[in-house]
């Protein structure tokens, strides 16, 4: 949020005057809280939640008075603070049995403290990256020139223009299409995606760790164009299932297809599932 505003001088506050705050400095409720904690020199490991809550709400009220749009996140944080405050004021619920001891003794502020600490950590690193940015901008590089004549700068990965891709496709199709069977009669196709997948899998498995060239997987003429299409679909399916891997040594280079043994495959899938559950 980018708010630029000045605190009104005539503030009808009967109690303590609010600290003057630059509104555009805060990136979000956590940022604001961290600022309040630091400004008030509060002990982050023993947060004076009542005081923090008071200051935070005062700040929100001020924003309201200035008729600013307050982002929803600020209200969520206000609610969280109030909840922590009330939980700390209320006596702990009577213990039902001794097993619950550890649960009931968790400090209600703990989660908030952890969030503040983590955010503070990233803020500190961001500061040092800011310095790295400044340092780096003191250094200048040459941009590559467009060379003409015998050589040119090769295209970067992901920067291939549509026309260049089209040319590559045309080239491939023209060499592949040369062997296409002339259609003399229409018959039921004898080849299915499943068959093609099996073929790719067994052929890449046979060559082992070396991997097989994509070009070698292309059907030999005479063939139906459908076979090329199916080969491509089969590769995509196998890749999705983690059965094969493809690798390219260099940009515009040869593409190799590698078979992934079942054990590794499960490990890979297991990893991603674990990652998912970890959240």
């Amino acid at each position: 949020m980018l708010l630029t505003a000045v605190k009104p001088t005539a503030k009808a506050s009967a109690t303590t005057p609010l600290p003057s705050i630059r509104l555009d400095a805060y990136e979000g409720p956590i940022d604001l809280l961290l600022h309040l904690v630091r400004q008030g020199k509060m002990d982050i490991f023993d947060l004076p939640i009542v005081e923090l809550c008071r200051q935070y709400l005062a700040y929100l009220r001020e924003m309201e008075e200035l008729d600013l749009n307050i982002a929803g996140e600020f209200f969520v944080m206000a609610a969280t603070l109030l909840e922590i405050k009330s939980r700390m004021l209320l006596p702990a619920p009577p213990k039902l049995n001794s097993d619950e001891d550890s649960d009931s003794e968790i400090d209600p502020r703990q989660e908030l403290v952890e969030r503040l600490l983590e955010y503070g950590k990233y803020q500190a690193i961001a500061e040092s990256l800011r310095e790295a940015e400044r340092q780096r901008q003191m250094v200048f590089f040459r941009a590559p020139t467009e060379y003409t004549g015998q050589f040119r700068v090769p295209p970067k990965f992901g920067q291939m223009s549509a026309s260049e891709l089209l040319r590559a496709l045309e080239q491939m199709l023209s060499s592949v299409g040369a062997g296409e069977k002339a259609i003399t009669s229409v018959r039921r196709q004898k080849i299915t995606l499943r068959m093609k997948m099996r073929e790719v899998q067994s052929r890449s498995e046979r060559v082992g760790v070396e991997g097989i060239l994509l070009a070698d997987l292309l059907p030999e003429p005479p063939f139906a164009l459908l076979e090329v299409v199916l080969l491509f679909l089969a590769l995509l399916e196998l890749l999705k299932g983690g059965v094969v891997m493809v690798a390219q040594e260099e940009f515009c280079g040869e593409i190799r297809v590698f078979f992934v043994p079942e054990a590794d495959r499960e490990a890979l899938i297991g990893e991603s599932v674990e990652e998912g559950l970890g959240d």
Binding site: I30, Y119, L129
Partner: peptide, 24 residues
């Protein structure tokens, strides 16, 4: 700069993970 810092240390990470840290 804060967002790219979080991504750099936790990559690969999702938008929700970043928002959980930054609170916005």
């Amino acid at each position: 700069i804060e967002t790219v810092t979080i991504i750099a240390y936790r990559q690969p990470c999702t938008q929700a993970e970043i928002e959980a840290i930054r609170g916005v």
